[in-house]
């Protein structure tokens, strides 16, 4: 069946019921939640959260995410530095997992959201369904970037001796916040804005 018939129909993100799109703010007919705010509000929200996340991406990558204190000698390593160490150590699968989860996934999310935002303003030749799929992927991969933050905290719990200590660096906080804001940005995006 076609995507749009006489009425524009949309899916409630909460209860999955099919609703008639009335352009403005919508209350779902089944769960009675306000499922979509006005379009310009969600558009601006998405941009605001995205900019916050992009700003946080820099400290997350530039500041050390892991600080090792070994007999008074302090060694700091950033995300990329950690990946390089893993690669040199020969654990390629783990290096690839972390590279994908903490470097590529956030970047891909930024690119996807920017692309979707642009495609709401200009006509981009790609099918409506593909854009929806892209949005679905953006939402699905979002939480995977948290792996690095979790790994750092687990390591800091286990390597906590008087001689050797691992401490999460300020990059970890920035990184966790960045993931949080990219997820918020994706959630705020209004799929009704996607053009056919």
């Amino acid at each position: 069946m076609n995507n749009e018939k006489k009425h524009k129909l949309i899916r409630c993100p909460i209860c999955e019921a099919v609703n008639i799109d009335t352009e403005g703010a919508i209350q779902c007919r089944r769960c009675e939640e306000n499922i979509y705010p006005k379009k310009n509000i969600s558009y601006n929200q998405t941009i605001a959260f995205l900019i916050t996340a992009i700003i946080l991406y820099f400290p997350a990558n530039l500041y050390p995410i892991l600080i090792t204190k070994q007999l008074g000698v302090i060694h700091e390593s950033t995300i990329l530095g950690g990946i390089m160490l893993l690669w040199q150590g020969g654990s390629y699968p783990v290096a690839i997992i972390i590279l994908v989860a903490s470097v590529f996934v956030p970047l891909l999310k930024f690119i996807f959201i920017i692309y979707l935002l642009i495609s709401t303003k200009y006509n981009i030749k790609s099918s409506h369904m593909d854009k929806h799929k892209l949005f679905y992927i953006t939402e699905a991969i979002g939480s995977w970037s948290m792996i690095d933050v979790f790994v750092v905290t687990i390591l800091s719990v286990l390597i906590h001796f008087t001689a050797v200590k691992i401490i999460p660096g300020s990059g970890a906080t920035a990184f966790a916040l960045m993931v949080f804001f990219t997820m918020l940005s994706a959630h705020a995006f209004d799929t009704r804005l996607l053009k056919k």
Binding site: M1, E16, V18, M129
Partner: peptide, 10 residues
Amino acid sequence: LVICKKCHTL
């Protein structure tokens, strides 16, 4: 009616 969560096909 039902809309697919991934590609929004009706």
